[in-house]
Amino acid sequence: MKTILTTGSNGLLGQKITEKVLLEGRVNLIATSVGVNRYPVKEGYEYAEMDILNPEQVKEVIEKYRPDAVIHTAAMTNVDTCEANKELCHRLNVDAVGTLLSMCEEKNIQLIHLSTDFVFDGLDGPYKEQDAVNPVSYYGKSKVLAEELIKNSNANCAILRTILVYGISNDMSRSNIVLWAKGALEKASPINVVNDQWRMPTLAEDLAEACLLAVEQDAKGIYHISGKDYMSIADLVRKVADYWKLDDSFINEISSASLNQAAKRPVKTGFVLDKAIKDLGYNPHSFEEGLLILEQQMDKAN
Score class of each variant (00 low, 15 high):
Val36Leu: 11
Thr269Val: 15
Gly8Cys: 02
Arg199Trp: 11
Asn283Arg: 14
Ile109Phe: 05
Tyr166Leu: 01
Phe118Arg: 09
Ser173Gly: 11
Ser286Glu: 04
Tyr282Asp: 05
Pro266Ser: 05
Asn176Ala: 01
Arg238Met: 00
Cys157Asn: 13
Thr202Tyr: 04
Ala158Ser: 06
Asn260Phe: 10
Asn252Ala: 05
Glu46Asp: 13
Glu129Phe: 02
Leu259His: 12
Ala184Cys: 10
Thr77Arg: 09
Leu13Lys: 01
Lys245Phe: 10
Ile17Thr: 02
Gly221Phe: 00
Ser189Phe: 14
Glu19Leu: 05
Ala208Gly: 05
Gly290Gln: 08
Asn260Cys: 07
Asp242His: 14
Leu13Asp: 02
Thr99Ala: 07
Arg238Ala: 06
Leu164Ser: 14
Asp171Ser: 12
Leu149Gln: 15
Val240Ala: 06
Leu53Ile: 00
Val34Tyr: 11
Ile168Glu: 12
Lys141Val: 13
Leu212His: 12
Val97Met: 13
Gln197Cys: 04
Pro40Phe: 10
Ser102Ala: 10
Ala214Tyr: 03
Ala31His: 07
Val27Glu: 01
Asn10Tyr: 00
Leu203Tyr: 14
Val267Asn: 13
Val267Leu: 13
Lys228Cys: 12
Lys20Trp: 13
Met103Glu: 14
Ala132Gly: 09
His90Leu: 09
Pro266Gly: 00
Thr6Ser: 03
Lys239Cys: 08
Gln261Arg: 15
Leu114Ala: 03
Lys300Ser: 15
Gly25Ile: 06
Ser137Arg: 07
Lys275Thr: 12
Val97Phe: 12
Thr6Met: 07
Pro190Val: 12
Gly14Val: 02
Leu114Arg: 01
Ala301Leu: 12
Val193Asn: 05
Ser173Glu: 12
Ser173His: 11
Leu12Met: 11
Cys82Asp: 04
Val21Arg: 00
Ile4Val: 09
Asn85Leu: 03
Gly167Val: 02
Glu56Trp: 13
Tyr243Thr: 06
Tyr45His: 11
